[in-house]
Design a protein around this nucleic acid. Structure first.
Lengths: 201, 201, 201, 201
DNA sequence: AATGAATGAGCCTTCATTCAT
DNA sequence: AATGAATGAAGGCTCATTCAT
């Protein structure tokens, strides 16, 4: 019997190496060689597990999205009210894990990748849509449907914007401040409709 | 007749070609050859005017930023109240010119470029800072300083987020809706402090 | 039950797979992987049985040559006159088995292989020489020795040429026509010397 | 003005290098690097003139076919009778230029290439068809049409066969002998129909 | 006997950049 | 000012071959 069961470990190593490499160089100009080296194997082996460079990238994207999805679900599990759930989404987006420099840089790069890789675009769009409908669902319990749509869009945009600015600037707001910013937006939009909730702490 | 004084025209052609090419492919994987061809000249000539590929990219970024700056200034000129000026900034960001698919795609790409090109980063940061202080300045006439900082950041983030989402999705909000979203954010944050302004139309 | 005595079967499978693969792609650009897959085993195993890719190719050539030799011998067994025996050789060369598209393509490829693989060259030369002397032997009973040599060469050339053209063209003569062509050549050359034989049907 | 007019020379050098390289190694496993080196330039430049490796090969084939075509036309120009013209074709095929080891080896390789490169196949088929109809045309003046077709096919096959055998064997007939062989075939087939022509010298 | 895992070497191709004219 | 010509350096991918189990 051959040396077996290496596949999951190797694939994981490659995915992780890809994210690190992209995150650190902050660009898509990452060679399979760099990735493989960081993952501790030859380029040939990288191609053995992922037939193509694009496949590696997609796997890395999928990993980040999945990780994020898992995080959202975890945080939402312990929430009871719709508002708690909305805040859970915000907090997950701006959690220590997701807001790590490396991850944020990778996100940005993937957004660009999505502009010309149909598959990457699909992936990102699916995630965005899911998140959106999740928010709309919870918002609908508090405000009219059409307003819910707007608020969800506004919240998501602000989060994405914070990401993009974080990737670029040192002077960008830190995690707590960023969270407060988004929570505040939510609070205000809801307050207008008459939904009262305590000030974001 | 010697072809003299061609330099500005050639440079402009290259810059414009660069933006188009990047905007249309939605990526930085744009060769000097493609740019030169679109600009109607040889690669050698492109290198004659811009010593390096990076220089071309930087010039293109500079152009977009300058263009945007000009637009903001124009719109602000006819504004009288601080609020008018703030809305002018928002409107400039989401104007037909800036919100064109091609331009938005280019912006996104430049953000990524800024992650590993120090010069590009500096450029983008200067622009962001300028815009930020511009907003803070106007906001300070209406709300306390620290609050002004937050609102400026929130507004800018939302705009950037809208850009990023526009680049990716077909279902992203259109221009008028996007503008309403941001204006609304502004209105609400100000209203909380007691500043009353008419509802965004 | 230990899988014992698998060797001959495995080798045969590989040889057959090699011929099919070469015959179908019509080129030497056949990977060990393709061959092994078609033979239903791993590349590693293919290398276990044949230490090297060249060895696989040589075995395949040897197989085709052997198969052809067997065919010639079989057909000649039931022939009585020299002319019958000569026709048997022609018929064997253009038999349904040998004239199959796949086999013809493989032949052609092996001819090329022989140009730079000394071993392959030797193999092919041995076969050619044997066939030649076989024909010369039979022809010598009918015509002078030097004439016999020429006729043998002419016949063999024509057959080889028919192969090459068959590999290339759809409009090449079909099997019966091809056989008639070669038999006719033989008949005419012999007739000139005074040997009379009935017209090829 | 740039260093100009290099194109024809460079292309010719590459074509010639390709033929030499293929002819000498006797295989299609010839790298662009080898070709470029022999032609005295970098691989990049080779790709500058021929976008693709296949394009180089096709150009080489085209060159050989063109050269051969030219040779046939030249030889036929000084021929008066149909028989002279037929012999001119034979002689051209077995001329010193075409029968050079290198050229013959290249022919064989191209035949294989034609098996999986549609474009190469087309090229070779066009040439074969042209030669065939040329022969048929001349033969038709001497024998019935259907017989003409057969004789043309037989002659062409014999020539092709001689090539293939020449590529492989040292003991293959030399040029004069080869020519005599084919001319003899022609003489005999025609003689049968009653066309008398002097013995091939 | 059998195979998944692993790799070094190599090939085609692209590209930014330079040079000669 | 302008460009065809030229190249070094790299990158993605393939493949024969070997190894460990």
């Amino acid at each position: 019997m051959p040396k077996v069961g290496q596949e999951p470990a190797r694939r994981a190593a490659l995915v992780s190496a890809t994210i690190s490499e992209i995150g650190q160089t902050g660009s898509l100009d990452v060679t399979v060689g760099q990735i493989a080296k960081r993952a501790g194997m030859s380029t040939a082996l990288a191609h053995y597990y992922f037939s193509t460079k694009d496949a590696i990238f997609l796997a890395a994207m999928r990993h980040i999205l999945t990780e994020f999805g898992r995080l959202v679900r975890t945080r939402m599990a312990s929430a009871v009210t719709p508002i708690d759930r909305l805040n859970a989404i915000i907090d997950a987006s701006l959690s220590r894990e997701q807001f790590a420099d490396e991850i944020v840089a990778a996100w940005l790069v993937f957004y660009v990748q999505a502009q010309h890789s149909p598959e990457a675009g699909r992936l990102l769009r699916v995630y965005a849509r899911r998140l959106h409908s999740n928010m709309v669902h919870n918002l609908s319990m508090l405000v009219p449907r059409d307003r819910a749509w707007d608020i969800a869009e506004g919240t998501a945009s602000m989060i994405d914007g914070i990401y993009i600015r974080h990737a670029l600037q040192d002077s960008a707001p830190d995690r707590p401040k960023a969270r407060a910013l988004v929570r505040d937006y939510l609070r205000l939009t809801l307050a207008e409709i008459g939904v009262r909730l305590e000030r974001a702490h």
